[in-house]
Amino acid sequence: MLEIATPETIMFWALAPLSVIAALGMLVVKKAVHSAILLAFVMVTLAIFFIAQGAVFLGVVQIVVYTGAVMMLFLFILMLVGVDSSDSLTETIKGLRWIAIAAALGFGGLMIALIARATLGRTAIGLEIANSDGNVEGIAMLLFSDYVLPFEVISALLITAALGAMVLAHHQRTNRRPSQREQAIARFRTGSLSDAAGLPGPGVYALHNAVDVPALLPDGTPAPTSISATLKARGDVIESAPFQLDVVDPTIKEEK
C-alpha cells in the first residue's frame, strides 16, 4: 500500500529520531548543563508534537512553562549547586549499568508490544469535532465544568508547593554575624600573619590578565591562595609558568 506522506509524517520522522538522540545524549554527557540543554531541546520537540496533534494550548504551555520556567529554574539551581557536581559516571553498585540497560530493554520492549497489541486495528477519531470551537475554548469548557474541583485543588497544591519551597530554602542564622572589627581581630589572632592583609590577587602578566591564572611567589612558584576555590574545583585554572618574564619571548615581532 502506497502511503502519501503528509507534512505531519515528515515532521514526525524528522523530529522523533532527533528527540530520541537528544534524550539518549542526556544520559551520556558529563556536564549537567549539557543535559539541561538537551532536555530543553526534547521539550521543544514535544511542544511541536503537541501542536501537530491539535493540542495548541498545551504546546504553548509546554514552551512557556517547561522550556521557559522549569528549565530556567534548573539552570539557576545548577549555578548554585553545580560547581563541583561534575557527575562521575562511575557506578556505585557493581554491574548497575548493564542491569539498567537490560531492564530498560525489557521494559521498553514490553511497552512497545503492549501499545502494538492495544492499538491493533483501531483508527484514531481525531480532534476535528472536539476542536471545532477552538482548542483553547474546548479546554476551558472542560476545565471550568467537569474539572473545576481538580482545578481548585491543584491551585491549593501550587500554593503549598510555593510555601514548601520557601520553608525549605529558608536559612536562619543560628549565631550572630561577626562584625568587621571582630573579623579583623580574629584574622590577626588566628592563622598565619601572611594572610592578615587579605588573600593575594590573581596574576597580572603582559600576555594574560584574568582571574584564572595564579600569581607568582618570589621563588617562582604559583601562589595557591590567589585563585578562587570555585575555579579550582571546576578545573578552569591555567598554569602561570608560560607567562613568566624569563619564559616569554620578549622580542617585538614586526607586524605585517
Binding site: V20, L27, F74, G82, L89, A100, A104, F107, G108
Partner: peptide, 17 residues
C-alpha cells in the same frame, strides 16, 4: 521510548539535578 530513556537516566546518573 522517551519514558524508558528517562527511567534509565534516573537509575544510572548520580547527580541529583
Amino acid at each position: 521510548l522517551l519514558f524508558t530513556i528517562g527511567a534509565v537516566g534516573v537509575v544510572l546518573r548520580r547527580n541529583a539535578i
